[in-house]
């Protein structure tokens, strides 16, 4: 009996080694399905708070650049607001335009929540972004996330005050995209390596695509509305079977310098109906 114990004690380190490695692999393969795994990510409150403290310090160094970008974006948004208000008042021809408040300047049917990027990586195969808004602010998994220049990714998991975003720069990301002003669509995936480019697969061979064309979201997924800018076509490659063409896309979002993100939350049916009513008051009255 004692020899058995001695044997076990002598080889205990093998057992410890195997058990620990098994735990690691279980973590590696189960984090997808196991909701509790949010605590093992940067979206748990301790790590997120530490990282957000650091990003607060870091953000001071990027203030000048950030401001320039925000001012530029503000200008463009203002322009768009004026344009839309004008269109709207021409359409409605009454004082309704004033009632159209900034609340739904966002694309019809989506609420927009601004968030700060707390943590970000671009050098791994599966990158993640952590933002400082969570379930308390109404976020939930599978909401689209955009940056100042275009699509960023999709909310993956949420804790109370932080969320983990699956960016386009993640091997698991798969976004339905199309060429602007056409209906040909394909799937955008990132294959690792350079964080500035992704690959658009399964575009039909006969689709009319040129280098320099703009790639936008197709609206086939519920995460994003139609027409959010994703990038620009950089190269064309026919696939091996000749049925499809593969596009190398220069992403419009600069993930290395991402500081702010906007989460798109689809309105529920009741909200959408109320919005439609305010948009078409005449129709509603006629009823």
């Amino acid at each position: 009996m004692s020899t058995i114990f001695q044997f076990f004690y002598k080889h205990l380190h093998w057992l410890v080694f195997i058990v620990l490695e098994i735990i690691c692999f279980v973590l590696l393969f189960s984090y997808n399905s196991y909701q509790g795994s949010i605590y093992l990510s940067t979206a748990n409150s301790v790590t997120a708070r530490l990282l957000s403290g650091k990003s607060r310090v870091n953000s001071y160094f990027a203030l000048a650049d950030d401001n320039a970008v925000l001012v530029e974006q503000n200008a463009r948004l203002k322009e768009r607001v004026f344009e839309l208000e004008q269109m709207l008042s021409a359409q409605l021809q009454d004082s309704m335009a004033n009632a159209i408040s900034s609340e739904w300047i966002s694309r019809a049917g989506y609420h927009v929540t601004g968030a700060k990027v707390v943590d970000n990586s671009i050098n791994k195969t599966n990158n993640f972004i952590t933002i400082d808004k969570g379930t308390a602010e109404g976020l939930a998994p599978d909401m689209g996330v955009i940056g100042t220049d275009g699509a960023v990714g999709v909310v993956y998991k949420c804790s109370e005050h932080y969320s983990l975003v699956l960016p386009l720069l993640n091997g698991k990301s798969n976004l339905s995209c199309k060429v602007l002003n056409s209906d040909y669509f394909g799937f955008l995936r990132w294959e690792g390596g350079d964080a500035r480019y992704a690959i658009l697969h399964d575009m039909p061979r006969y689709a009319v695509v040129n280098v320099g064309d703009t790639i936008v979201t197709s609206g086939h997924s519920s995460f994003f509305p139609d027409g959010i800018v994703v990038g620009r076509v950089e190269e064309l490659h026919p696939s091996a079977d000749g049925l499809y063409v593969t596009l190398r896309v220069a992403l419009s979002t600069d993930f290395a310098r991402l500081h702010h993100a906007f989460v798109l939350r689809k309105m529920d049916a009741a909200e959408l109906a109320a919005l439609k009513e305010t948009l078409n008051p005449k129709k509603a009255k006629r009823k």
């Binding site: 380190h13 080694f17 620990l20 735990i23 690691c24 973590l27 984090y31 093992l40 791994k124």
Partner: peptide, 24 residues
Amino acid sequence: LMLLAFAMGLSVDVFCNTFGVNAA
């Protein structure tokens, strides 16, 4: 030492969303 290494790797994993890679 292995337990220490596991703890260390896991703490780094938590911060880079790599779920057990560093620990392993």
